[in-house]
Design a protein around this nucleic acid. Structure first.
Length: 586
RNA sequence: GGCCCCGUAGCUCAGUGGAUAGAGCAUCAGAUUCCUAAUCUGAGGGCCGCAGGUUCAAAUCCUGCCGGGGUCGCCA
């Protein structure tokens, strides 16, 4: 049950009725008519903008339309008042029973309350993390990983058919470096003194176990072979080991993917998907030989003007055409990425979402150009950029550097502050704004820490239901979570406000999903928790407002039903964000 | 120089084209014999970077400027 959609349907019916009666001219476009939450609750429960949207086309004064609409809606038994205000807003106040039905709906739908079918099962691909398989995940990967995971959750909750995907960059020069680094550790494992790790190779200790495993698998066999023979073996061995490690790191954050797509697989097994994708673009006349200008403001001594194979991305709004071949004749990273996205399109995805780090921001226009060209504009690609995370420890900036040995891995962060705080803090900010992450504050258990604030609201709700169960062991609501109580006993304004906030949950989910903005959910949960804490504390001064009334079974039942519904919304919201909803916090 | 992101309270940031622009922190003043005070109530604090434009309505959309950050063929 979505009260906003419900009331909007009634408004549209009323408008059509006015059309038939001739009060409004026929043929008006109602597409922009919306029922929303008024910013100021004093204005009413729901507000409708119909009069202002339609005034011009109808050639009528906004207030006249609003009055006519109000006249019809006042006949609705659920509408207590319909007032025209300001430039032509129609403010509606609904009777209490209308809101009690929301509580019933929440408990009836349980974890599914707030889920939606706005996504219409559209095939949607969310690509996130895609860290190079050359080492453990570091803290810089963390934000995009959490963001992508929460967005995928959110989209499937809103009815999209979501595939979570990881693109493994296992084809570039960096995996050859990985192989050579692992080979060195292999020699070390066989007893050789390898001394300092030469610069240009990966020095991390995390390759030691890989070297040992290589020694166990191959014995001394590889030592005799030339590099061209051992490199492919060691490379694939090391990549598998790195991916296993990365998957473990991600699991520590409760992140998983449905598909791991190998870049190398684009050109192995007798196929060449890169050539195929380029051919597809060529057929559209978008591939040509040309020269690129040397970028300005870039003092590159080694710049060499040469003719190369280019993709005409400027035809789709990019500021430069883009190279597809390196000087040695191999494909650029971009060429492979085109083929990868071509593959996604051929697998039937119509909504593509990529989560990028801030350093890839300049890559966006060319990727969008490629998808637009390959799909003939039938698919959309949204690229969500996650800005940098600045680390602090007790207010002091905390730099990470591999050389100084303060290389902060994602695992370190999760181990130190815990999964829930990491996830929530990463989401409690718009993705395209930089984020300050202070280890001290994130672990602090106080109201200054939004994670604990929201979780505490959930634990509080759980706690009061436990206590109610002791006071009234046979009370159905606290056992079954069903709305059998007489909710008309919920007459306090604070109680009704809580219901109205909970009623906004489905609308919020749809908006956040369509905008690809999971942070909206984090802020909503904070707001709902705040309202709950506020109402709760009123019980300190006014004992008659407390949930459990030992001498009044009926009112305890009604309030427990409300608390159970709030607990459900908090729990559902936290679950979508991938954050735990604890039953108790002590 | 091109492109992208950001500019809202002292600080960190919300704000789905709508009514008097919000929250947290910090500051100040209060609340606990009580269902979890890990909480709550109140006060002060604003040319929403600047200037135009679109609109019945702009912090929000468009253009230009100013300021901060990022990025710019053969790395991935």
């Amino acid at each position: 049950m979505n009260v906003f959609a419900e009331v909007e349907a009634r408004v549209l019916a009323a408008l059509r009725g006015l059309e038939e009666k001739g009060t409004l001219p026929a043929g008006l476009d109602f597409a922009n008519v919306a029922v929303e939450q008024p910013r100021d609750p004093a204005h009413g429960d729901l507000a409708c903008n119909a009069a202002m949207v339609l005034a011009k086309a109808a050639k009528m004064k906004p207030r006249d339309i609003a009055e006519a609409l109000a006249g019809v809606l006042r006949l609705d038994p659920d509408v207590v008042s319909a007032e025209v205000a300001g430039p032509g807003f129609l403010n509606l106040r609904m009777r209490d029973a209308f809101w009690y039905d929301v509580v019933g709906a929440i408990l009836a739908k349980g974890p599914l309350y707030g889920s939606s079918d706005v996504g219409r099962a559209a095939r949607t691909n969310v690509e996130y993390v895609s860290a190079n398989p050359t080492g453990p995940m570091h803290v810089g990967h963390c934000r995009g990983a959490v963001f992508g995971d929460a967005l995928a959750h959110l989209l499937s909750f809103a009815g999209y058919d979501v595939t979570r995907e990881y693109y493994i960059n296992d084809a570039g020069g960096q995996v050859d470096v990985l192989a050579r680094s692992a080979f060195l550790r292999y020699r070390e494992a066989l007893g050789e003194d390898i001394g300092e790790i030469p610069s240009g190779l990966y020095p991390g200790d995390y390759l030691k176990p890989v070297g040992a495993a290589l020694a166990e698998t191959y014995g001394r066999d590889l030592l005799q072979k030339p590099e061209e023979d051992w490199l492919p073996l060691v490379r694939s061995f090391a990549i598998d080991a790195m991916m296993a490690m990365i998957k473990e790191d991600l699991a520590a954050l409760n992140i998983s993917h449905d598909v791991f797509f190998s870049e190398r697989s684009l050109t192995t097994g007798g196929k060449n998907q890169i050539a195929a994708a380029i051919a597809a673009l060529d057929a559209k006349g978008l591939i040509f030989k040309g020269r690129l200008e040397k970028p300005k403001g870039h003092d590159d001594e080694e710049w060499e003007d040469r003719e190369q194979t280019l993709f005409r991305s400027t035809a789709f709004g990019d500021d430069n055409d883009r190279a597809l071949m390196k000087s040695d004749g191999s494909y650029t990273y971009f060429a492979a990425d085109i083929a990868y996205h071509y593959d996604k399109l051929q697998r039937g995805f119509r909504h593509l979402i990529n989560v990028f780090g801030a350093d890839h921001i300049g890559y966006i226009p060319r990727m969008k150009a490629a998808v637009a060209a390959l799909s003939d504009g039938k698919a959309d690609l949204d690229i969500k950029v996650c800005q940098l995370v600045k680390l602090f420890k007790g207010g002091e900036p905390f730099k990470m550097s591999k050389r100084a040995g303060t290389f902060v891995t994602l695992r370190d962060v999760v181990d130190e502050v815990g999964r829930d705080p990491v996830r929530f803090m990463m989401l409690y900010r718009k993705n395209d704004a930089p984020l300050d992450f202070d280890f001290a504050k994130v672990t602090e258990q106080s109201k200054d820490n939004p994670v604990f604030y929201v979780q505490y609201a959930h634990a509080r709700a759980a706690s009061v239901l436990r206590n109610a169960r002791e006071a009234f062991p046979d009370l159905e609501v606290v056992h079954e979570g069903t709305a059998t109580a007489d909710l008309s006993l919920l007459t306090d304004g604070g109680e009704l406000d809580l219901i109205k906030k909970a009623a906004f949950f489905p609308t919020l989910i749809e908006g956040a999903a369509q905008a690809h903005e999971p942070h909206r959910l984090a802020f909503y949960l904070y707001d709902l928790a705040s309202a709950f804490h506020g109402h709760w504390t009123r019980g300190n001064d006014l004992p008659q407002l407390r949930v459990i009334q030992p001498n009044d079974r009926a009112i305890t039942a009604a309030r427990c039903t409300l608390v159970a519904s709030l607990k459900q919304v908090l729990s559902s919201g936290l679950t979508v964000l991938g954050v735990g909803a604890p039953e108790a916090m002590r």
